[in-house]
Write a protein that binds this DNA or RNA. Structure first.
Lengths: 293, 293
DNA sequence: CGCATTCTCTGACTATAGTCAGACAATGCG
DNA sequence: CGCATTGTCTGACTATAGTCAGAGAATGCG
């Protein structure tokens, strides 16, 4: 219990300060400069390539190089050329470096603990719950949805994840060849549209619409990455797709889905989709829905 | 609605970052260095004494002096000697300074807005509610309770506030001379004990116990400042007083209270106090409570 | 009146957190 | 092989955010 409350607070601090723009791990400093402490942290227990660490922290190469030299002088890290590519250098923590990192970790724990300590247990629980809610919603507000080319790397990745998930969740697996098609050209304007959601550069969801000249448009390829479920992204994607469809002159949207996809079905119902009789022969479908825009 | 959501987010940011230790108003910067922006902000619309601003921001006198010189060169502030004491200098914003401050204000609003914008209205409302809860509890965790000398300035201030509030809330006012006494010597160990709660140096509540050799100890002078009500401070004070009483060997605590003090009565009941027959002749009391520790 | 104190300011200094240009070595590719 | 590219490093520089010592003016107090 105690443990998870502390974790909550720390996790919350990370998120909030990222959103708020500060690096504030100020309390981690004092032993090392903040820059060194952040680097020490980011290197991690198993070591990492310098370029990778630099990318994650978005720091200048010269600056990182100097920070590493300083950490090296203090005996906290070793830097060595990578096996595969001798231009690339890897950095890892020495025993002293690991100890230092554990110390930072402990100070952050103590900080979180000091924050909780004056509160009653009930208050601590409520604080943790509210922090979780704030964190969740701040993360949700980091997600951006944009029209995407279905052949782009991120779009393909999402569509692959979608396929893999259907294949796992459907009783009989999922073979796209047997299912109604949603080829790249069908999801590219003016034939259709594909939206991809990103969180901090990483693709985390998608959804598409296929337009038809004399029939309702079809909703396709709705997928939300597991790590962002519960953030309301499905609803946002759906709303964005409906908006795009309306812009394209669509008046009725419809879709079919498999009984295994219970969250999706609940999402469609919540969004005002009504179950209708089968309007196609999709072999994997158990439910057909329709909504007038 | 929109307005209060933005305010919520901003208010939350202020609190969180203070707790987390960062000055992060980083997004306020870019036009001026962060230091200058903070100063501009702290001076406020009506001007202030330099020493006051310096105290609030906890900055070095030399540093503030230089920052002010810089703001002065930019035509944003004027510094002039105070009327009453010509050693003291006052600073106030010029028209340009006020405009600059409004600009910062607007940027902070835009920042908060950008954070809310991707969310659905329901999510925005939930975010604001969770932020408020977090803020409330973080504030609560800033409050520290300590044993205090009843003659100290902070203790006297709390006791005066207590008296003023009773005088206002009781139907017939409150005259301490007619009420059971709680003189400084009665609230000083070993005769009794006074706890004062502080939030960021400022006194925000108090509570006392009078010990009696052959009778139950008496709870006295429970008061919580209006601006920190709803933070559970009453419960914490009560718990701390009970703890102190138990340490002093007290086995039964009792108290009397006026029917106007409904929150206090609810607090005592929640904390396990049971209403008993009048055990003294306090003229202002309507209810008598007792708890076995 | 004179001495201590208060408030502000200047000068001199430091650490942190960078940025930018370019050198150098390893690698990839035609 | 030669040339472009990639990854890292060094040198030179900058802005920010301070700190510390001490000077000087105004004030308070005995």
């Amino acid at each position: 219990m105690e443990r998870t409350l502390v974790e909550r607070v720390r996790s919350f601090n990370r998120t909030v300060t990222e959103r708020v723009g500060a690096l504030h791990d100020h309390f981690l400093g004092r032993a090392h400069a903040l820059g060194e402490a952040r680097l020490l942290w980011e290197i991690g227990g198993v070591g990492a390539e310098i370029r990778e660490v630099r990318g994650r922290l978005a720091l200048d190469s010269a600056y990182v190089s100097r920070l590493l030299r300083s950490l090296q002088r203090q005996g906290l890290v070793v830097v060595e050329a990578s096996r595969e590519d001798r231009r690339v250098r890897r950095v890892r923590l020495t025993a002293a470096g690991l100890a230092e990192r554990a110390e930072l970790d402990q100070r952050a724990d103590a900080f979180a603990q000091a924050l909780l300590e004056p509160l009653s247990v009930r208050q601590q629980v409520r604080l943790a719950a509210a922090m979780a809610e704030v964190e969740r919603l701040l993360l949700a507000s980091l997600v951006r949805i944009a029209v995407s080319d279905p052949t782009s790397a991120d779009a393909r990745w999402c569509l692959e994840q979608y396929a893999a998930e259907l294949n796992e969740r459907f009783d009989a697996g999922w073979d796209p060849a047997r299912s109604i098609s949603a080829q790249p050209h069908e999801l590219t304007p003016p034939a259709g549209i594909l939206l991809v959601a990103h969180m901090r550069e990483a693709p985390v969801g998608c959804g598409a619409v296929k337009f038809h000249a004399h029939a309702p448009a079809e909703l396709k390829r709705m997928w939300v990455a597991p790590q962002v479920r519960g953030l309301g992204l499905g609803q946002r994607l759906l709303a964005a797709l409906e908006h795009a469809a309306r812009e394209a002159g669509v008046s009725v949207l419809r879709l079919e889905t498999n009984r295994a996809l219970t969250e999706a079905i609940a999402l469609y119902r919540r969004a005002g989709y009504e179950e209708v009789a089968a309007f196609n022969a999709e072999p994997y479908a158990h439910h057909w829905f329709e909504k007038r825009l």
